[in-house]
Design a protein around this nucleic acid. Structure first.
Lengths: 149, 149
DNA sequence: TAGTGTAATGAGACACTTTAACAATAATTA
DNA sequence: TAATTATTGTTAAAGTGTCTCATTACACTA
């Protein structure tokens, strides 16, 4: 791929803000970018500890708003008492379809989004920065299970 | 209007579940339905206290999942460390457009939702129960303000 | 009407996530 | 080198939401 790497993006962002690129931040970011998946602070923290990386939770919490502002990650939903995040840079924008029974999450593209964005810009005058579409329902498997009961 | 009242809906729901319709629950529900607006637990609690209605927070917290399951309210977004809810029964389904600067929230209809719902049913086999579309951006006023700076 | 079982309540304790304060440390700048 | 500023880990604190528990209210039956 010929797009800028996440680290480059982030270093530029820090530089612009007069902030520092520290070893701790690098380790956290690399860990996040390793899986390119949903994550939350606690599992990220534990995963790093298991690898022997000793980073305090506070540093993770402090890093998250920076990564969000740099456009690398995004809040996706609040569940089980804490926020879940998602790596987004270089990913196709997508929506979440979650089963209310088994909690499984599938991703899908919203083909209408470009139209919607245009409408919101024209009709409401907004400068759109991001959007989040979350659909809840029963997945096929859980639907079957409910029938049998 | 000739639709069932919220209280009727809720009483039916309780009956079906073998739960009880208590004065406390009635007071909370009436307070929620009074404004038909977004709310969170703490402000609802304080509002009731100011009116001299003494309801414990625990009762509000306990009631919320019931109201959600009865289809009367919905979680709308998590902000400032707590969840915000919205009365939905009898309301046109709508989406939220929020300004990241002034926090103002506007509502709009998503004309593409019926198509999307159909697609998700057919392509993913889901039985859809609800959807939440939240768009963030800069409102016209804040956009102007930023230009001047 | 009395008795029994279940649900609901308020109060407070509790668990948990996230933020803040602080002193120590590292990087940057003059 | 000295001064400044950002960052870190630790610890404390704030805040939300859940749980426990004793008590109360209700529904049902005898």
């Amino acid at each position: 791929m010929n797009q800028e790497s996440e680290l480059q993006i982030f270093r530029k962002y820090l530089q612009k803000k007069g902030l520092r690129y520290t070893p701790e931040r690098e380790q956290i970011i690399k860990e996040i970018f390793l899986t390119h998946d949903h994550f939350d602070v606690d599992t990220l923290y534990l995963r790093m500890r298991q690898k022997g990386l000793q980073i305090s939770k506070a540093s993770i919490y402090r890093l998250i708003p920076l990564l969000i502002e740099a456009g690398l990650i995004e809040e996706v939903f609040f569940e089980d008492g804490h926020m879940h995040y998602e790596y987004i840079y270089g990913h196709e924008p997508h929506c979440h379809l979650r089963c209310i029974s088994c909690k499984r999450i599938e991703e899908f593209r919203d083909p209408h989004w470009p139209d919607m964005e245009k409408m919101l810009k024209e009709k409401f005058g907004y400068e759109i920065t991001n959007y989040k579409l979350e659909v809840q329902g029963l997945c096929p498997a859980c639907k079957e299970k409910q029938k049998k009961e």
